[in-house]
Amino acid sequence: MVMPVIDAKKAWIIAGGSYNPITAGHFIMMDTVREKCQAMGYTVDRGYFSPVPDAYRMNKPKLLDASVRAEMVALACSDSWLQLHDWEWRQHEFVRTRVLLDHIQEEAGPDVKLFFACGADLIDSMAHHPSWSPEDVCHLLKKYVFVVVERTQASADRVAAIIGSEPHMAPGNETIVVTQPTVENDISSTMVRDAVKERRPLSGLVHPAVAQYIVEHGLYSE
């Protein structure tokens, strides 16, 4: 008997951040989230890195121009299932997560579920930082899935405690998922910048094309 083919649910994975620069660790995170999505019964159609715009340089003066960071993301994704999302970094003001995800959802259409890749610190910020309005948080947690990639059970316990700490985080019981990275991942953008300053090799930290770009343009040397 031939079993009927059932179309799996479609998902796009989004990850926001400075990407100053994008690292191998970011790719490990996204591969982890893709595995989690697939385990939940979704077919991952696309995965996007969305760099923050230049407006964030008000708080991070050493943040490189958005066009430079976006170009490094594009280089790193050149041979990957992941892509640069080209909207947020071109904006002239801060972009709230709600605005970003709603924009991408409109682009994706109603048949695609958006998964947002993040760490426990973002969930903590959503619960307690005044920059996140309860209205935005409720909207996000009801409409999208947040996949928190953390390395320890303590981090999972922390996320559960955060969700239970504020009434407006209640939808997160259904839409915040904690998972562990598929491989050891302690690579950060700070680690890459320090390696450049100390003239250490970047092999294994960033994509070879990104390493070449950093050297050719003299980035992070000061």
Rank of each mutant, 00 (worst) to 15 (best):
4 P>M: 14
5 V>W: 08
14 I>E: 01
14 I>N: 02
16 G>I: 05
22 I>W: 05
24 A>I: 11
26 H>Y: 12
28 I>R: 05
32 T>R: 06
32 T>G: 08
35 E>Q: 15
37 C>H: 01
48 Y>M: 03
51 P>K: 06
52 V>S: 11
53 P>F: 01
57 R>G: 04
58 M>Q: 13
58 M>E: 12
59 N>Y: 03
62 K>S: 15
81 W>T: 07
83 Q>R: 13
83 Q>A: 13
88 E>I: 09
90 R>H: 09
90 R>Q: 14
92 H>K: 14
94 F>A: 15
97 T>G: 05
98 R>P: 00
103 H>Y: 12
103 H>R: 15
109 G>Q: 03
110 P>V: 07
113 K>V: 07
120 A>F: 04
121 D>K: 04
128 H>Y: 11
128 H>M: 04
132 W>K: 01
134 P>W: 06
140 L>W: 03
146 F>N: 02
147 V>M: 06
148 V>F: 00
151 R>Q: 12
152 T>Y: 00
154 A>C: 04
157 D>Y: 02
159 V>Y: 06
160 A>I: 02
167 P>A: 14
167 P>T: 10
168 H>D: 05
173 N>D: 07
176 I>G: 01
180 Q>K: 08
185 N>Y: 10
194 D>V: 07
203 S>W: 00
206 V>K: 06
212 Q>A: 15
220 Y>D: 11
220 Y>K: 11
222 E>N: 14
